[in-house]
Write a protein that binds this DNA or RNA. Sequence first.
DNA 1: TGTTAGCACTCTTATAGTCCGAGTGCTAAG
DNA 2: CTTAGCACTCGGACTATAAGAGTGCTAACA
Lengths: 342, 342
Amino acid sequence: MLTERQLLILKVTVDDYIQSAQPVGSNQLAKKSGLSFSPATIRNEMADLEGMGFLEKTHTSSGRVPSERGYRYYVDHLLTPRRLPKGDIVQLRSIFEDKITETEEVIKRSAMILSELTNYTSILLGPDVRRHIVKKLSIVPLSSGSAVAIIVTDTGHVENRVFPIPEGLDPSEIEKMVNILNERLVGVSLNDLHKRLEQETLMVMKQHMERYGDLFSTFRQAVILPQEKNVYYGGKLNILNQPDFHDLHKIRSLMDVMEETEHIPMIIPVGNQGLHIRIGSENALSAMEDCSVITVSYDIGEEQTGSIAIVGPKRMDYKRIVSLLDTLSGDLSKELTRILRN
Amino acid sequence: MLTERQLLILKVTVDDYIQSAQPVGSNQLAKKSGLSFSPATIRNEMADLEGMGFLEKTHTSSGRVPSERGYRYYVDHLLTPRRLPKGDIVQLRSIFEDKITETEEVIKRSAMILSELTNYTSILLGPDVRRHIVKKLSIVPLSSGSAVAIIVTDTGHVENRVFPIPEGLDPSEIEKMVNILNERLVGVSLNDLHKRLEQETLMVMKQHMERYGDLFSTFRQAVILPQEKNVYYGGKLNILNQPDFHDLHKIRSLMDVMEETEHIPMIIPVGNQGLHIRIGSENALSAMEDCSVITVSYDIGEEQTGSIAIVGPKRMDYKRIVSLLDTLSGDLSKELTRILRN
DNA sequence: TGTTAGCACTCTTATAGTCCGAGTGCTAAG
DNA sequence: CTTAGCACTCGGACTATAAGAGTGCTAACA
C-alpha cells in the first residue's frame, strides 16, 4: 500500500535521521540524497507517511522524525543488509586471534570489541551454567571448621564455595566422601545436582553413615547455585556518548536496569533463536522505552546456546548492527563449538 | 592565627554548604545557624576567610563556597567525629548478620551497604591475592587436549584456568604430576608460585622426565596470575545522583577511571594504613579533581590488609563518612580475621 | 575598638519580547 | 501528477528588564 516512492522516501528519511540525529526536512533531503523530486513533492509524501504513522513531527513546523512504527517498517522491509567494511571484520576476527582456550574469555572479549565497534552497550550471555555437566567434585579442607567445595564442569567452568564442616572430622573421612560424591554425581548436570544430592544424602543416611549425612547436607547447601549470572558487558558507559540521552534520570534508571542481572531475561528473551529487534516500547522494561535492543543467539556445541544483545537508542544504526551481530554470532558459534570439542 | 569566631564561621559555612550544595551567604547563615553575630559581622569574617584562601566566591556578589584549602582545614581541624546514628549502625551490622563464611562475600556486601548508606561510590579492595598461600593444586582433564588447572589458597580463594595439554597424555601421568606439584608447592605464596614452578620445571627436566617438563611449563603459563583484581564496587551509578556532577563528559571520564582496575592504585594508595582523605586536586588522577576520596585500611588476620574507599564530591559529608569508615573498618577487621582463623 | 545598620552596587536567574531560519501546508500554475 | 510560490508556524538565539540574594563599604553605635 506504500508506493515505491514513499518507500524510498521513508528509507532515506530514516537513514538520514539515524545518521544525523536531526529532524529531517524536505529541502535538506532533496539536496543531500540524490532524490530527483522537488522538495514540495517530498513534502507531500512525507505528509502522507506521517498520516500513516510512519513519521512524526517534533513540533508543528519541524522536520520529520521516524515514529516507532516507522522504525519497525524500516527494519522489517527496508533493511538491506550491507557487507561489513573490512575494518570491522578485522576487528571482529581479532577476538579470536590469540588462541584462547576458555569460553568465558572469548565471550568477554566479544563483549568488549562489540561495544567498541558499535559505541553502544553490549550484553553477552554465556551458556546456561545449569546445563553444564559435572566433571569432578572435590573438597579441600581449609581449617578444622571449614572447607571449600569445588565443582568442575565439562566446559572447564569452576564453581567454588566455602562451607562449614563438622568439627574434628578426619581428612580421610572427607576423602571417602569425595569419592562417594564423584562416583555418583559425575555426569549429572548442575541443574540436577541439588536434587541428586538430596537423594544421595537420604541413601547415605539409610545406611547409618550419619557422619557423612551431615557433610552431604552442608555440602548440598553450599552448592545451591547462586543464580549463576554469566553475563558479560561491554561499553556500559557508552550510553553517555549518545546524544539521544541527556536526561540523567533516564540514564540512571536505564543503567540500573541493565546492571541488575535479574532483569536480563526481560532484555534478552531466553530461548529465542535467531535475530530479533525490539524497538522502544516493544521492550518489556519501561526504562528501555527509548532504546532499541537487537539480540541474536549463538551456539556452543549442539546443545547449548548463548545470546548477544546490543542496547542503543531507537535511532540505532540497524543496518550495521545487524550485519555485525550476524557475523559475530556465526564466528562465535564456530569458535566456541571448536573449543568445547577441542 | 584564626580567631575562635573565624573557626566557628568557617565550620558552619562548610557544614551548610555540604548540606545544601548552595553558596552560603551571610544573612542566610546568621538566620539558620544560631550564630549570635549580625550578618555584617559574618560578612567581614567571611571576607577575611576568603582573603586567607579558605573560602571562595562563585562570582562577585555570590555567597561563599569552601575552597579546597577550606575543606582541608575543615577536615584537619574542625572535624568532630560524630557518633553514628543507630540506623546506620544497624545497617552496617547487617553485613554480618547471616554467617557468611567467605571473605569475598563479606567484602561484596560491605561495598553494597556502604554505597547505599552514603549515596556515594564505594570501592573495596580485598586482601592481596598474591600473598595467599597455596593449599592445594589440581588438574582436571576436560578432553584429550585440554585441562583445567585449579589452585586453592588458604583463604578459600580458588583460581582456575583452562590450559592445553599435550595430546595423548595418560590420566595417570597427570595424576603423578599433580602429586609432584602438590608435594613441592603447597605452602608457597601465589606470588612466588611462578618462580618456583620454573625451578621445578628445570629440576624435572634435568631428571629426564621430559613429558612432565612440557606439562609443567604449560601449567606455568596458565597460572600466570591475570593481575588479580579483587576489587568490589558499590553504587557505581551514585555519581549520577550528585547535584555536583552535571557535565556528562566529566562523569564519563570519572566512571571510566574508576572502572579500570589499572587505576585503582592511583585512587587507593596501597600500603597506607589508617584513614586518609584526599580532596579535589590532591588526588593523583585528573579525572578525580572534583572528587574527594576517603580511604581506610582494614586487617585480615595479622598479615594481610584490605582497603575501603569512598568516592564522592568534594562537598562530601566528611563527618559521616569518616565515622562510617572507622566503624566498618573495625568491624571488617574483626569479622574477617575471625573467618580466616575460623 | 569591635559591631552593626544602612545603602549602593553586582551578578544570577527568570521572564518576556524580538528576530531569524528552517520547515510546513496549501494553492495554483505547469 | 509535479512543482513553484507564499503565508504561516515554531524553536533557538539574543536582548532587555525586573527581582532577589549577596557583597563591600561607610558611618554610627556601644
